[in-house]
Each structure stands twice: as structure tokens, then as C-alpha cells.
Design a protein around this nucleic acid. Structure first.
Length: 337
DNA sequence: GCATGATCTCGATCAGAAAC
DNA sequence: GTTTCTGATCGAGATCATGC
């Protein structure tokens, strides 16, 4: 393990501080020598506050140095010594997209991650797997270094669970590349584990809108067969949450049967986008094609069958609960074939 | 520049629990 | 039984990004 970075930065800041101090002293000396020369633009603007502004600038530089003294050092650690956080939000699909391959290549060409990841030391009880640290944020950078077999630049900070979660979330949202499903998974875990007593408390702590958290959690809590019906879980969008949830509450068996059918279509080589899967699940029809409808008349009863894209809708004019139940069972048995 | 879609924000509303 | 509080969700409009 090697410590790098801080020494270099400290020395550069000290140089900056010394240079700034020297430049100000030279300017003050020159202006004092030549009282006839016009004051510098800085002095003109500062007016009577000239002297105190100079002091302020030195104070700012001092503060900058103090902040750096307080900052945690950057260290190089082998990625095998670091394990993913319990709140890890990255879905496996995130590491299989071209963007991650490009990201990995970038790290490889730079011989390491320029921006350090943040980790916290593991308690002795958690180190059974050989890991000594847990990631606070920077799962993708860690994963890239792990796959490349190179050391990863880290900042170690011994913070508590809640602080870790808040920092991880803030970093993710600032980066804005986390998908709704991943976000929801992270929030759902935090709520389920009791890290936050309620959705509202969670939203207050991380400074996010409860509506969005609610939508994200709804997505993450969809049943596995529904999640499996999408091409990738990362494609699932916030605005689908309410429709999927409502459909599941209204007709759970039908939606699950549709999910099973979508999975079957995929396994037989039929390509279906995640948007199409969503439309099929909730029974939405695309406006891209015209519906084809036909009517079947039996006595006084009329059945209307409408086909649009890959969606078929059956509409009965009048039907009792008992007969409807029979039809549902029949359709389910046909779909299960 | 415009249209469209995705996401965010805000206020309103509903449901359940606790207090009176 | 009612009132109040808290938590969760809904829906409309605003904002931003992207593609044509």
C-alpha cells in the first residue's frame, strides 16, 4: 500500500501560497515607491479596502491549505482488499454495456483511476473474505481496476453507515448515470434494513424528493417475473412505475401471465424491446399501427377482437363474473402451453 | 427552431395510526 | 367517534435533453 498525491498537492499549494504572498508584497512595494503611478486595477476596485483585501487573499490561501491538511490522503490499494458496499446499487448489466468497456479502457490508458474512490475500513467481523475496506462510492472504478488487475486510488474515511449511504447517494445523483432501477434497489435496501425509518426520513436525509424515491422503490419492488420480462432492468423508467403497479394490483395473474409470455417469446428468439415489453405488460397499444378488429356474434352476445402490433384485446358486451372467470382460466391454460 | 420524451417539482389527496 | 399527524402516492405542470 502506498500513499501518494497529498504530498505533491501540499507542496504545490505551499508554492502557490508563497508566490501569491510574494506578488502582493512586490506590488505593494512598487506602488509605495511610485506614488505617482496609477494604482493597479485590483487596488482601484478595492479602494480603501485595498490593504484588508490583500490580507483576505492570504487568509483564503491559508484556509485552502488548512482544508488540504484536513483532507484524507490518497492511497493505492489492491482492489481485492476492497469489497462492494452492502448498499451496492450497480446492477450486473451496468458492467456489461459498451460504456463500461470504454470507461475501463480509459482507466487502463491512464494506468489507474485519476479520481480516487472512497472507502471505509471494515470492522474485524466483516473481514472474513479477506477484504479490509468497503466502498462508499466508486463501484465502477473499483470494478474496472479489479478486472484490469491494477491498484486502485482510494481515500479512506471511517464513517458510519448512514453517512456512507448519504454520501454514496449524493455522488450517484451528481453523476446522474444511475438508472431508476438501480436507484430504487438502493433505496429499498436502505428502507428494508431500517437504516431509515421511513421513505420521508430517507428523502429528508439525502435531500431528494419523496415522489421520486417512491417511484424508484416501486420499480425495484416489482416481482422478479415482471423484471425479467424487460430486455434489461436498467431500461425500466420512472414513469412506468405507477402503470405497472396499478396493473399488478388490478390483475396480478394476468400481468404475470403476460410476463411469462414475454419471456417465452424472448427465449424463442423473438426480439422485444423493453418499451414493447412494458406495453404488453400493461396492455397498452402503440399508436404506430392501425388496429384490426373483427366481431364474433353468438346469439345476442357480441365479442370484439382487436389486434394491434402484438397486442390482442378481447371485448365482451355483457358477461357474468362466473363466465369471465372461466375465460380467464382458459386463457391462462392456453398461455401456459 | 420545434416536437417529443424523460425527469423533476410541487401541491393535493388518501390511508393508517395515535391522541383526545 | 373525531381530529391530528405522518407517510405514501398521484397528477399536472415545469424543465431539460435529444432528435429531426
Amino acid at each position: 500500500m502506498a500513499i501518494a498525491g497529498q504530498g505533491v498537492i501540499m507542496s504545490k499549494l505551499s508554492e502557490k501560497f508563497a508566490a501569491g504572498k510574494k506578488a502582493l508584497a512586490e506590488r505593494q512595494s512598487a506602488e509605495a515607491k511610485d506614488s505617482t503611478s496609477p494604482p493597479s486595477s485590483f487596488a482601484r476596485a478595492a479602494g480603501p479596502l485595498h490593504g484588508s483585501v490583500s490580507t483576505m487573499k492570504i487568509d483564503l490561501l491559508k484556509a485552502e491549505i488548512d482544508a488540504l491538511k484536513a483532507a484524507k490522503p490518497v492511497m493505492k490499494i489492491h482492489p481485492s482488499e476492497i469489497k462492494a458496499s452492502a448498499w451496492v446499487n450497480r446492477h450486473q448489466d451496468s458492467f456489461e454495456v459498451p460504456e463500461f468497456a470504454a470507461f475501463k479502457a480509459e482507466i487502463e490508458s491512464a494506468a489507474g483511476n485519476i479520481q480516487p474512490i472512497k472507502v471505509r475500513p471494515l470492522k474485524s467481523a466483516d473481514t472474513s473474505g479477506g477484504a479490509k475496506y468497503e466502498i462508499v462510492f466508486g463501484h465502477r472504478r473499483h470494478r474496472a481496476c479489479l478486472e484490469l488487475g491494477i491498484e486502485v486510488n482510494v481515500i479512506v474515511d471511517d464513517i458510519d453507515e448512514k453517512t456512507m449511504f448519504v454520501e454514496m447517494d449524493r455522488e450517484n445523483r451528481e453523476r446522474a448515470d444511475l438508472r431508476p432501477f438501480e436507484q430504487g434497489l438502493m433505496y429499498a435496501r436502505a428502507l428494508d434494513s431500517g437504516l431509515f425509518s421511513s421513505l420521508r426520513k430517507l428523502s429528508e436525509e439525502i435531500g431528494a424528493d419523496p415522489t421520486n424515491i417512491s417511484k424508484a422503490v416501486s420499480l425495484a419492488r416489482l416481482p422478479e417475473p415482471i423484471l425479467d420480462s424487460f430486455e434489461s432492468r436498467l431500461d425500466i423508467q420512472y414513469r412506468w412505475a405507477s402503470d405497472l403497479k396499478a396493473a399488478l394490483e388490478k390483475e396480478p395473474e394476468l400481468i404475470l401471465a403476460r410476463a411469462a409470455d414475454i419471456k417465452k417469446q424472448r427465449s424463442s428468439g423473438n426480439h422485444l424491446s423493453s418499451q414493447s415489453a412494458f406495453n404488453l405488460l400493461v396492455g397498452k397499444v402503440s399508436s404506430s399501427s392501425k388496429p384490426v378488429a373483427r366481431k364474433v356474434t353468438v346469439g345476442k352476445r357480441v365479442l370484439t377482437i382487436t389486434e394491434r402490433d402484438k397486442m390482442i384485446t378481447y371485448e365482451f358486451d355483457t358477461l357474468g363474473r362466473e363466465k369471465l372467470s372461466k375465460i380467464e382460466k382458459f386463457i391462462a391454460s392456453v398461455m401456459a402451453e
